[in-house]
Structures are given as C-alpha cells and as structure tokens.
Simulated scan of single mutants.
Amino acid sequence: MAKRVIVVGSGIIGASIAYHLAKEGAEVTVLDAGEPGGIATRASWAWINASWGNPEPYFRLRMASIARWRALQEEIPGLAIQWCGGLIWDLPPAELDAYAAERAAWGHPIRRVTRAEILALEPNLREVPEHAYHVAGEGMLEPLAATLALLEAAKAQGAEVLGDMPVKWLEEEDGRVTGVITDEGVIHAEETVVAAGAHSAALLDSVGITLRMSSPAGLLSHSNPAPRLLNGLVMTPGLHIRQTAEGRIVAGTDFAGAEPEEDAEGLARSLEAKVEAMVKGAEGLGLDFLTIGYRPTPADGFAAVGRPRNRPGLYAAVTHSGVTLAAVIGQASATELITGARDALLAPYHPDRPSLT
C-alpha cells in the first residue's frame, strides 16, 4: 500500500521532495499557505553552483545536486536550466587564488581565465580584472517556472497540490506526528514533511521541537528587458548579475548586515546603476521591479534535513541554497522517507546537530 505523505511548503525544496516521492509511488499531498511556488523561491537569484566558501562535505552535496539537476532536466518536460557557466572574481586576488586551488584539489572544474578570456566569455563587460575563474558547469534557472514544472511532474505521478491552505500547526498523537491542522480541519498522513522555508521553525515548535534558524532578507533588482547582453553568471565585488530568459538583468549583492527593507527602492536603483555602468548596452535600461526574499537559513548556515529528534511521522528539510540543493535533497529525502535509508551525503546535516537545537 502506498505511503501517504503530506509536504508542507511548495517552494523548490518541497516541490522536489513531492516529485521524487510521487515518482516512487507515495500518495503525496502538497500544502501551501499561498499560491504554489513558495515565497523564498520566487525571490531567489537562482544560481546552481558548488562555489563559495563551503567545507568539502557541503561541496560534495552541492556537486551531487548539480548532477541530479542534469538528470531531472531529462526526466521532466518544461524544466529549463541554462548551463551557461559562471565567472567569479568577487574576492581579493590572493584569496580568490587560494579558494580556486582548494576547489581544484577537490575535483571542481574551476579554470583560471585571463582578461582576454573573460572578455571572450562576456564581451559586454567593462573594467574586468587581469584574471578571474570560470566554472563551465554552473547554471541558472527561472525559480518559479522550475518549481511549477516540478509540481506539475509530481501531479502527473498522482500528487495533489493545494494552494491557499495554511498549516496552523502539526497534529501529534502518542509522540507521533500524524498530520497537520488547517482551517479546513485535520489532514492525516503517515509522514509529514516540513519544507516551509522561513515558517518551518514555528511549525516544528508546535510539537516541541527547536530548530534554530534565521530568515535574512535578500534584495534583487530586475531591469527592463533587453537584448542578450550576458552569456552567463557574473560574480564581481559588490555585484552579482545574470540575464533571464525574457531579457531582464537580475542583480544582487551582499548588504553586509544592512536591512534591505529599510530603503529597498534606493538599494535597487543603486544596483541597477551599477549594472548600467558595468554592462555595455545596458545604459538606460532602468529598474522595472525589485524583489525581497527571506532566505530560510539554519543557524550554522547549512542544510537541516532529516527526522528531528527521530520523531516518528515527521521529517524536516530546511536550507538556504535551495535552488542548488533542491534536486539532491528531493531525491535523498524521498528515499529516506520510503525505505529508511539515509544518504551518506546528508550525514553532517541532521536537524538534531548541536548548532541547531
């Protein structure tokens, strides 16, 4: 008999878990407080990568997810991923070289490129450095479209997706989580997956489980559409940019502890001005709109995936880097929920680790 599973949250993590569960024959219901597609997912910069200052186990997890994304692209019609590569020079030169050497020793296909090679990859950039690093295997997707494609693929396998269905708290009986309580009443299941992003901690708290996490705001500016000006992802000091399928240049930066909500319009216009100064052909594009996303981030910065306190009937999947990690978390979580076998790549990321409880 098929295992009945509720997935709370229809962002890219919840959608991937739902798809992988349904593919394995589970009876899946996805619940979301708003429209399917989640909240943080919609405002993601949507970079699929194994870069940045991650320790080797997290690097391995991210590389596995990149491989799974490539497989998913073959499995799911309408899942569009651009494997466009990424240029990186957003660290001081000595730190950048040390970072690249470490990644190369781990087997990362990161390549040093000269100024001439940078301009060959991105001819519309101004003021490029003498050298940078390029990773050809990195990609980007349109986060809402990709999430909806995963949900449609789950539905094709029999899953039910219900929007405008907020979960008030988790239902528990004799120490086992038996489902969720909504405004429509109790919905029962053998397993309940909490993949509700910034709201995950509150839901877990409803059954006495602590998950230390934060939800820092991230702001992105979106230009008016333009002809193709960028070929891939570009990470520079103070500005990260990519161009969407519809031609908008999406820009973000690290606000170094500032609260972007306090002057969102001003910060977005500042980002857009940097874009227009950096990219030839972007002059006068202007800001079309901005987005602010609240990134669900466990307290130590790494994913929290598994059964909190080994509570029967309950599973949690909370992470920043959701776009990169959704593919492997979806696959590994579904396997663990159905068979009980835990992927070794998830070993460091149990939600019961001391930094989170």
Rank of each mutant, 00 (worst) to 15 (best):
S321I: 15
R311T: 15
P57V: 07
D174E: 12
R295Y: 05
A136F: 06
P225F: 06
P57M: 09
E117G: 05
T210R: 04
H240R: 08
A159G: 10
R126M: 11
A116F: 11
T236A: 14
E102I: 10
L151R: 01
F59G: 05
W89Q: 15
G78H: 03
A317V: 04
G179E: 02
P298G: 06
S215G: 08
F59I: 11
G14N: 13
D300P: 01
D164I: 01
G238I: 05
S270G: 14
A64F: 10
A67S: 11
L239T: 08
A273S: 15
H108A: 14
M235C: 13
A116S: 14
K168P: 02
H134T: 01
A299L: 10
G340R: 12
G139N: 04
P109G: 08
G306P: 05
S44K: 03
A273N: 11
A105K: 09
W169T: 02
G11I: 11
A46W: 00
I187T: 04
L151T: 02
D288I: 12
P92Y: 12
I338Q: 09
S214A: 10
G232L: 10
G306R: 06
R112S: 06
A136K: 08
E259M: 08
A341V: 10
S270P: 01
A316Q: 02
L144I: 05
M235H: 13
L219H: 10
A2C: 05
A46T: 05
D352C: 04
A277P: 03
G9N: 07
F289S: 11
V194K: 01
K23T: 02
A98M: 12
T339F: 09
F59W: 09
N231L: 02
